[in-house]
Design a protein around this nucleic acid. Structure first.
Lengths: 215, 215
DNA sequence: GTCTATACAACGATAGAC
DNA sequence: GTCTATCGTTGTATAGAC
């Protein structure tokens, strides 16, 4: 009912968001969140009766931040949709490098930690993945002129996401980029293979369907 | 110095292994482990002075179990190395199905939970990945006659692992197999594309026979 | 809406009898 | 090597004054 959003609430969500990404949800104590947010622990319970409601607010905020904090700069700087996808993968690589492998994918981390034990949060995690997938799917949709008719933008987006999540997991485990770079280069090979197939025997594409498929 | 391995120790490691896979390392209490193993909590500290030493024993045991519990049956039933890889991926799918998405990859879970906070265990987790990668790499090495010379078995194995880990993560989050199946089908498309490339412009490669042993 | 004090449970780890 | 009792800490959540 208050017309103005309380600043305290935002500080709490921001602090929790960072700590959940860094330490995980379970290991992060509410007192730690209050300390980092520089609010009193009582305020915390004023806005979020339970820890899991705070988690929900964090996951809602992550959904909002996908565009301004993850995609926007890349989308502004690069117009080519395929390039956008690989710049996005570069960005996760840079994040690993800058943080010395201490930050992984904040959504992927919570997915593994919480899907089983916190069914309510599972849905919000899925929505975060959904939005990410939609953005990447849109890239492949926009590049469809270069791709075979059989190429499925949604399926390609899923492949990009699974590769990224797996690659981040291995980079953090090995604390180097060998596996990460290997996975991304295979993904690139796959997508460039599709582009080749899409432009070679189909260079004047899109008028309608044509035969000529595999074999 | 005891010539005979204590049975109590094994019971503890087995119970801990299962609970760590199911609930994670942090959320699993030592009393819970003792209860499940049906030993007294004192015994636990007799064999493992700290919880992290028990974790190390669990991760060492996972390394030992890779062959008999994950690979052997598939390797026995299927000779074709490419088929072995995809049957392995099928097996993770079946595990998800049988456990109703409650079990993911036990190593991947611990990787994300512990790489940052438990540097000592990180090395053992990496060794588990290494052994898995070696087994899959060996498959692609054995199939090299069907693959282009440029194909790198190690890099392909990494791609299989990242895809599997990402696919398991999404399956558990969505609690259905749409993303899992999409990712695996893209991976299959990638690998079959390599096989096509390997046999088309190179069909008389490597003197050995390579004629229909599929199925 | 802020702040202090505290209830109540669970945790990892330890001591010491047997 | 087994078992019980318990220490000291930390966790989430609450109560109630202001």
């Amino acid at each position: 009912m208050t017309p103005l959003q309380s600043n305290t609430r935002d500080k709490i969500v921001d602090a929790a968001m960072e700590l959940f990404a860094y330490n995980g949800y379970g290991p992060t104590g509410l007192s730690e969140i209050a300390r980092k947010a520089k609010v009193q622990q009582g305020s915390l319970y004023h806005f979020f009766p339970t820890k899991e409601e705070l988690l929900a607010a964090v996951l809602e905020r992550r959904k909002v931040l996908l565009w301004p904090e993850v995609l926007q700069e890349i989308w502004d700087r690069f117009d080519d949709p395929i390039e956008r996808v690989f710049k996005l993968l570069d960005q996760y690589r840079m994040m690993l490098q800058v943080t010395e492998f201490s930050h992984g994918c904040p959504i992927g981390n919570l997915a593994i930690e919480l899907t089983e034990s916190h069914p309510n949060s599972r849905r919000l995690i899925a929505e975060n993945f959904d939005n990410w997938l939609k953005a990447v799917e849109q890239c492949f949709h926009e590049a469809s002129r270069r791709l075979p008719d059989t190429a499925d933008p949604r399926r390609m987006a899923i492949f990009v996401l699974t590769t990224m999540e797996g690659a981040v997991m291995l980079a953090r485990t090995y604390r180097d980029f060998r596996a990460y770079d290997a996975a991304i280069s295979s993904l690139r090979e796959y997508i460039e293979g599709l582009i080749e197939a899409g432009t070679s025997w189909d260079s004047r594409k899109k008028p309608a369907s044509r035969r000529g498929d595999r074999g």
